[in-house]
């Protein structure tokens, strides 16, 4: 049974229809990439999953249950942790409080404060500092650590490489592969070809709010990937 599926989803912001019949799925332990140029609706997939965009047709399926009007917290409570584009660090909370917020779903598992601090020692060293006092890369560590605190089955990452130095992106790629090897499914919404190639094994291409292509990443050349995501 898929951890997450979109079944012919049309999604809107107010009157603006962004997604048109989007269908995809992520199975347990999979590493799936969603590709597409800017403005094709990639982040709207995340927003639909979170109940920020409205579903007008179709449904999302979480753990076998269909939902047409998901509340914001439904995905997290279904074992899907989301690293938002822009990271969503709460500026009035310390690093540790941001992490504790991720544990609000009370799911058992290996990830707790100690495990996250082992993974990202800088977060432990600065645990009482405000989250926004970190560099961009460290903020991304915080956002990922916070998502892991939910002990998710599926980690959804929306443009995690945005604004980061290549060396940090390499570290993230290693981390995502390691998490996948440990059993956490990864859904990577991304435009960084190197990161996609190093992390994902399967892909969906989004164009004008519709999935136009899908398949195994092993069969795609870098140039083909480039063609899908170059503005």
């Amino acid at each position: 049974m898929p951890l997450l599926a979109f079944d012919h989803v049309d999604a809107t912001y107010g009157q603006a229809r962004i997604l048109h019949g989007v269908t995809f799925h992520v199975d347990p332990g999979e590493r799936v990439a969603v590709l597409g140029r800017n403005g094709v609706g990639k982040t709207t997939i995340v927003n639909t999953l979170c109940g920020v965009a409205d579903i007008q047709a179709g449904a999302i399926v979480l753990g076998g249950e269909r939902h047409t009007s998901p509340r914001h917290y439904l995905a997290a409570r279904s074992g899907i942790a989301i690293v938002l584009q822009g990271r969503g660090i709460l500026p009035n909370l310390t690093i540790e409080e941001n992490l504790l917020l991720g544990a609000s779903v009370d799911r058992p598992g290996r990830w707790d404060l100690g495990a996250v601090y082992d993974l990202f020692p800088i977060l432990g060293e600065r645990r009482q500092s405000p989250g926004l006092g970190l560099s961009g890369g460290q903020q991304q560590m915080l956002a990922i650590g916070r998502a892991l605190m939910a002990n998710p089955n599926l980690l959804v990452l929306d443009e995690p490489s945005e604004g980061l130095a290549p060396v940090i992106i390499d570290e993230l790629a290693d981390l995502f592969r390691r998490l996948a090897d440990e059993g956490t499914a990864i859904m990577l919404i991304e435009q960084n070809i190197g990161l996609i190639q190093r992390v994902a094994s399967r892909y969906y291409v989004l164009s004008k709010g519709t999935v136009v292509e899908s398949g195994d990443l092993a069969g795609m050349t870098t140039q083909q990937l480039q063609d899908h995501i170059t503005i």
Binding site: V52, H72, L90, L101, R146
Partner: peptide, 15 residues
């Protein structure tokens, strides 16, 4: 405190 600054992100995190 989290939701007083960003209720949507707070809810997306599972609250």
């Amino acid at each position: 405190r989290a939701s007083s600054v960003d209720p949507t992100t707070t809810a997306i995190l599972g609250v």
